[in-house]
Computed example of a mutant assay.
Amino acid sequence: TQMSFSTNPSSKGAPSGHTVEISDVRLANGAGFIVAIAGDMMTMPGLPKVPAAERIDIDDDGKITGLF
Rank of each mutant, 00 (worst) to 15 (best):
T1C: 13
Q2A: 06
Q2W: 15
Q2S: 06
Q2P: 06
M3V: 14
M3A: 15
S4F: 00
S4T: 15
S4N: 04
F5M: 12
F5D: 09
F5N: 12
S6W: 00
S6H: 02
T7L: 05
N8E: 08
N8C: 07
P9T: 11
P9W: 01
S11P: 01
S11L: 14
S11K: 09
S11R: 11
K12H: 09
K12F: 12
K12P: 04
A14E: 11
P15L: 03
P15I: 02
S16A: 11
H18L: 06
H18Y: 15
H18S: 13
H18D: 11
H18T: 10
H18E: 11
H18R: 08
T19H: 05
V20N: 11
E21N: 14
E21Q: 14
E21S: 14
S23G: 02
S23V: 04
S23L: 01
D24F: 01
D24S: 10
D24Y: 02
V25F: 04
V25K: 02
L27C: 07
A28F: 12
A28N: 14
A28T: 04
N29I: 05
G30A: 13
G30V: 00
G30E: 15
A31V: 01
G32I: 00
G32T: 01
F33A: 07
F33E: 05
I34S: 03
V35S: 00
V35G: 02
I37L: 12
A38E: 15
D40R: 08
D40I: 03
M41G: 04
M41N: 06
M41E: 10
M42S: 10
M42L: 11
P45W: 00
G46R: 02
G46Y: 00
G46H: 01
G46Q: 08
L47M: 14
L47Q: 14
L47V: 13
L47S: 15
P48V: 01
P48C: 03
P48D: 09
P48A: 06
K49P: 00
K49G: 00
V50P: 07
V50Y: 04
P51E: 08
A52M: 12
A52L: 14
A53K: 06
A53Y: 05
E54F: 08
E54A: 15
E54M: 11
R55D: 11
R55N: 13
I56C: 07
I56S: 06
D57I: 11
D57M: 13
I58S: 02
I58M: 15
D59T: 02
G62Y: 05
G62F: 06
G62D: 03
K63F: 01
K63G: 10
T65G: 12
T65D: 07
L67A: 13
L67Q: 08
F68K: 10
F68G: 09
